[in-house]
């Protein structure tokens, strides 16, 4: 299928009727839509998904869900989507129309099967008509009676146009989808889950397996006794009731998320007001905290004051520290000298005692007395020998005077000197610094307290602060409520699993007639053939996905192509997760180790995801037109050229790129011109955007 033309009428900044022709050819498959930031490229993408899916936009992916949540709810999104100038002119409708060609349809009573049907779909909203938007589908040559209900139309879009599950691969922002590379296995599985179903065309086979299972269950039920049948009916009702409850909870969760988003945007407004007009950026609950802080600082101030007073007692000594040191030194020398004198006297005394005892104490020599002159001679000699042997003690210092101090007085001076040495002037300075800092802190905090107290007297500030607190309380409650909903949902799912198991056991026990047994056996063969087929297809699709993704990455990424930095991605492995939970994709380096996707740069992530998207689309059983916002996202100059010359020209039969003049300036446009079927420029004046044929003429315009 292809989209030939789109008409936007009064949608958001698109004033009046805006027609854009998207016809492409085999050689020229690209349509380029240039627009500066804020001119409406993203809203152009939004208009298409709104036209196709209406309220179900939120189910496409988180990005589109946020677009709805920005306005609070779907009805508000609709109301805010009417062009603001049109509102002033008294008009009340906006619409989006998509004209489709090359549409493939199966044979019905109304038509032959074929792949060149044309159809037009239109979604319109009138803000003066309460209720939903109107959704209309017209197929050339087929009566409108085909679509009797809204569900018929939704099914038609999902089965023959672009399935909702595939929309994330068809309408996307190339920069934002790079974040898929950061998803957990479970999240990645669910994002890629649709790739194995709708997109690869296996959903029809799985649908038939499901219908065949319903058929075999039906055969058994027909043969059940009245009592067993009653049990089956009760169990099935239980399952149905649980499914209803789960659906109800899911819609409650959606409402909860929408309410949360709305309240969060209110909080942002309150905060903006308070930042602008309030003297503070605190909330009232922090006032008590500030009082507490002030009390603590005052206590600290008092402590420092006491410490300073203690220190100030020794200030005179500090000032006289030099003199005190001199006295201390003098006392030390004086003590040394008196010690030496004492030692000298002791030695002289002992020598005299020795001489005295030598000459005057018995026994005496038998040959007569020693003469006095000899005694003098030997006494002098002994004195000299003692001096030689024990060393002569000499005074080293000549002190001019001596302090006449008692021992306790000397001790006091030494102690005072040591104390001053320890409590050096650094401590004084530090204490004074701390004291000043605490004083400043007290002044600051008192200023803030004063502002808060004055705010507390400002009624508007009080109102906004109260509203903000109330909104924060609501958010907490909503988060709690959402958690409770999710728990209930999980419990119901588990309960249904058990009920289904017991139902299967019950059905298997029923004995059936010979004729029904034949049918059961035959139906089971059909089921087995289809299950084998689906399982083999999933395996082969996985291996094709691995190969195609890897080849594409090799094409696009220089690092892989020229082998520099080693082979940091040498292989890709895609595995189907159990329980139909989608795909798990792993990257391996040349040593066979897993390369974590989060280790890739933003540009590399974009290349990896773009390669994966292309691989998925190449395996799809339908040809989709592809719409890409920010097509060159985080890429550098050389990779941009690869994308423009090799990736986009081969991505699909119809590729619509929405770029800024920074991404695809005129110089790059020349590069890609050979592939471009049509180029348009979004022009904006007075907040109104119009679509004009042509492209940026220069970097500036």
């Amino acid at each position: 299928m292809k989209i030939d033309k789109i008409i936007l009428t009064n949608f958001r900044q698109y004033y009046g009727e805006n027609v854009i022709n998207l016809m492409t050819t085999k050689e020229k498959n690209i349509v380029l839509l240039g627009g500066k930031t804020g001119y409406g490229k993203t809203n152009f993408l939004l208009s298409l998904v709104w036209c196709l899916y209406g309220e179900d936009i939120a189910k496409i992916d988180e990005g589109f869900k946020r677009e709805i949540q920005k306005d609070g709810s779907y009805p508000k999104f609709l109301k805010s989507s009417l062009n603001w100038d049109i509102v002033r002119e008294g008009k009340s409708k906006f619409s989006v129309e998509i004209f489709i060609s090359d549409l493939e349809l199966p044979e019905t009573r109304e038509n032959e099967s074929g792949n060149n049907y044309k159809c037009r779909i239109k979604r319109e909203f009138n803000i003066n008509s309460p209720g939903d938007d109107t959704f209309d589908i017209k197929i050339d040559g087929i009566k409108n009676s085909m679509f009797q209900t809204l569900d018929d139309k939704i099914n038609f879009v999902n089965d023959y146009l672009i399935p909702l599950e595939a929309a994330k691969f068809v309408f996307f922002d190339a920069e934002k989808i790079a974040s898929w590379a950061e998803l957990s296995t479970k999240e990645e599985g669910s994002v890629l889950n649709d790739a194995l179903g709708k997109l690869l065309g296996l959903d029809v086979y799985e649908g038939l397996i499901n219908d065949l299972n319903i058929y075999t269950d039906g055969l058994r039920k027909e043969s059940a006794t009245a009592q067993v049948r009653q049990t089956i009916i009760t169990t099935e009702k239980g399952i149905e009731l649980n499914i209803e409850k789960i659906e109800h909870l899911e819609s409650e969760i959606l409402i909860n998320e929408s309410d949360t988003a709305k309240i969060k945007s209110e909080i942002v407004k309150y905060e903006a007001f308070l930042v602008q007009y309030s003297n503070r950026s605190f909330n009232t609950s922090s006032l008590d905290e500030l009082y507490k802080q002030r009390d603590e600082l005052r206590k600290k101030e008092k402590d420092l004051e006491n410490k300073f007073n203690e220190l100030s007692e020794i200030i005179p000594f500090v000032l006289a520290a030099g003199k005190l040191e001199e006295v201390n030194e003098h006392i030390k020398l004086q003590d040394e000298e008196s010690y030496l004198v004492e030692k000298q006297n002791e030695l002289i005394e002992k020598n005299s005692e020795f001489i005295e005892k030598l000459f005057n104490n018995p026994p005496f020599p038998t040959d007569g007395d020693i003469s006095f002159s000899k005694k003098i001679f030997y006494a002098d000699k002994a004195k000299r020998i003692v001096e030689d042997v024990f060393g002569k003690i000499e005074k080293t210092n000549e002190l001019e005077f001596e302090h006449d101090l008692s021992k306790s007085e000397k001790d006091l001076i030494v102690e005072t000197f040591n104390h001053i040495q320890k409590q050096s002037k650094d401590i004084f300075e530090q204490t004074i610094d701390n004291f000043n800092r605490v004083k400043n802190d007290i002044t600051e905090i008192e200023k803030v307290i004063k502002n808060i107290e004055s705010d507390l007297e400002d009624e508007e500030i009080i109102e906004y602060t109260t509203n903000k607190k109330e909104a924060e309380r609501k958010i907490e409650k909503l988060i709690e409520e959402k958690g409770s909903f999710q728990n209930q949902k999980e419990n119901l799912k588990r309960e249904n699993e058990k009920l289904n198991q017991s139902l299967q056991v019950l059905l298997k026990r029923i004995s059936v007639s010979e004729q029904k047994k034949k049918k059961l056996d035959k139906a089971n063969l059909y089921i087995r053939a289809l299950e084998d087929f689906v399982s083999a297809q999933k395996k082969s699709k996985c291996s094709a996905l691995e190969q195609t993704t890897f080849n594409e990455m090799n094409q696009l990424m220089h690092k892989l192509r020229d082998g520099s930095n080693g082979k940091f991605i040498a292989a890709i492995k895609a595995e189907a997760l159990p329980n139909n939970d989608g795909l798990k994709i792993s990257l391996f380096d040349s040593d066979g180790n897993i390369t974590p996707k989060e280790s890739l740069s933003m540009g590399e992530k974009q290349i990896y995801i773009s390669s994966l998207v292309k691989a998925i689309l190449s395996l799809a059983v339908q040809d989709f037109p592809i719409f890409i916002d920010t097509p060159l996202g985080r890429l550098d100059h050389e990779h941009i050229n690869n994308f423009l010359l090799s990736y986009y020209p081969n991505l699909a039969n119809q590729v619509v790129l929405m770029a800024t003049n920074n991404e695809i300036p005129p110089s790059r446009f020349k590069l890609v011109r050979g592939f471009v079927a049509n180029a348009y420029l979004l022009e904006s004046s007075k907040n109104q955007t119009k679509i004009k044929q042509g492209y940026f003429q220069s970097y500036e315009n």
Binding site: Y205, L208, K519, K522, Y526, A529, L530, F533
Partner: peptide, 29 residues
């Protein structure tokens, strides 16, 4: 591929191409 799986499981490929049970049983008889 589907035809291959049908052959393997002795199921009529045309019948599956549902994408019938009584007819299939009758044809066997």
């Amino acid at each position: 591929e589907l035809e291959k799986e049908c052959r393997k499981n002795q199921v009529s490929f045309i019948s599956v191409e549902l994408l019938e049970i009584e007819n299939s049983i009758e044809n066997e008889n």
